[in-house]
Design a protein around this nucleic acid. Structure first.
Length: 401
DNA sequence: TCTGGGGTCCTAGGACCC
DNA sequence: TCTGGGGTCCTAGGACCC
């Protein structure tokens, strides 16, 4: 059992979140079938080449269908597969509802992703009871009241709670107290360790490290020599030491991006710029919603051979003006593009601050003020009538510079 | 791989400064 | 300059997560 002074952390993870939420939503709207009981997946749009599996039902899993795999491949494994298009706004709604629900159990609930969070249960035993029993009750209450299942992992830090939550699924509660590490975590293949991705696992395998236990009991200096900071982190994680700490989404935002895989490869400048303007508008709008300014702009491309590359530029003066950002985006794109067919465009802004450069803003050029007013008008129309209510493209493109 | 979209963090090299 | 070392900033690319 845990020490008196130790923390108690729950990791709560919605099982096949997008699919579960789709199933609940469809049942509420009179559907006869529960997506969770048939081979089904939530996926992108196949025709526009966005066809990958985002979430799968348990029967779909039985066919060997994996998340992230192309829909085409999934259909080969299971021809009768039901494919549901993704509805991200809906999932945001369900996500918010769950986190609100959890706040009854602790004042400290930290969002890790749309369907995962950490709940700090430390000091709540006197109110609700012993953690494992409470976790079971909580899991069943979510099922009964919200309509879907979750996994709950419990331990003394976020890392171990998360590893506990992954042990077996779905609809399970697992503890992974420090003294249970050798029996519950060390036998697992190294791939199962949080933050051990393909590249690190490849290096570790050359060192004959196959399980999490192998890594935990290896020489830290050796691992660090091969994998630098990443190696040091993985070695600590394998030993159940959360060093560095796992960060959640409650910190300030570092960057805003939007990307788009095109239905067909793009080979002409005009079409490319249309996509880039669209992405820029989305990013700039979100930037202004957050009342932020960016000092770095980056454009990323993926060509038809899946080669990815990017260019970025530091600005002299932070901005939130769509046209400012777009002008830099155009330059960055032209620096990179040699005419190769492109399948993906990305616009990203970073180096964010909450005010435009302090002194300069007092003497803001008249033109900036006009552009900012234009952005404001368009943002207002969009908020009232929806994102597609106004075609900014023509406005911007025709606007004399 | 017929391979999405939104993030964070790290590394390495070059420019520039003292 | 055929020159050392340390620091900071910028840029490109990659690893990893859900």
């Amino acid at each position: 059992m845990q020490n008196q002074k130790d923390k108690i952390i729950f990791h709560i993870d919605v099982n096949s979140a997008f699919l579960s939420w789709e199933a609940v939503e469809q049942l509420q709207h009179g559907s006869e079938t529960d997506l969770r009981t048939i081979p089904s997946v939530v996926g992108g749009d196949e025709q526009s080449r966005r066809g990958v599996v985002l979430a799968r039902s348990t029967p779909a899993k039985a066919f060997g269908i994996c998340t992230g795999e192309p829909l085409f491949q999934a259909r080969k494994k299971c021809p009768q597969l039901t494919v549901v298009p993704a509805r991200h706004e809906l999932y945001e709604k369900y996500s918010a509802e769950l986190f609100k629900f959890l706040e009854d159990y602790s004042p400290s609930v930290s969002k890790f992703s749309i369907d995962e969070c950490f709940l700090d249960y430390t000091g709540m035993e006197n109110l609700f009871g012993e953690p494992v029993q409470v976790a079971y009750a909580l899991k069943d209450k979510i099922h009964k009241e919200l309509g879907y299942t979750v996994n709950i992992g419990i331990s003394t830090n976020r890392l171990l709670a998360k590893m506990a939550g992954e042990l077996t699924k779905p609809d399970k509660v697992h503890s992974l107290w420090p003294e249970e590490i050798p029996t519950k975590m060390w036998p697992l293949p190294i791939r199962e360790l949080f933050m051990a991705g393909r590249s690190s696992v490849g290096v570790l395998q050359t060192l004959r490290i196959k399980t999490i236990g192998d890594l935990a009991n290896s020489d830290l200096k050796l691992i660090e020599g091969r994998l630098k900071k990443q190696g040091r982190m993985l070695w600590h994680y394998a030993n159940g030491i959360e060093e560095p700490a796992i960060q959640t989404r409650d910190r300030e935002i570092k960057g805003i991006s939007n990307s788009c895989t095109t239905p067909q490869d793009v080979t002409d400048l005009e079409t490319a710029q249309k996509y880039l303007l669209d992405l820029t508008e989305n990013v700039a709008y979100r930037l202004r919603q957050q009342k932020l300014f960016c000092s770095n702009i980056s454009v990323g491309l993926k060509d038809c051979n899946f080669r990815t590359y990017s260019h970025q530029r530091q600005l002299n003066k932070p901005t939130d003006i769509t046209l400012d950002i777009y002008n830099t985006v155009k330059i960055l794109f032209q620096e990179m593009w040699k005419g190769e067919p492109l399948r993906l465009f990305e616009v990203r802004v970073s180096d964010l601050s909450s005010s435009p450069s302090s002194q300069l803003s007092l003497f803001e050029p008249e033109n900036d003020e006009k552009l900012r007013n234009l952005d404001h008008i368009i943002d207002t129309i969009r908020q009232k009538n929806g994102q597609d209510s106004i075609l900014r493209a023509s406005l911007l493109l025709n606007k004399p510079k």
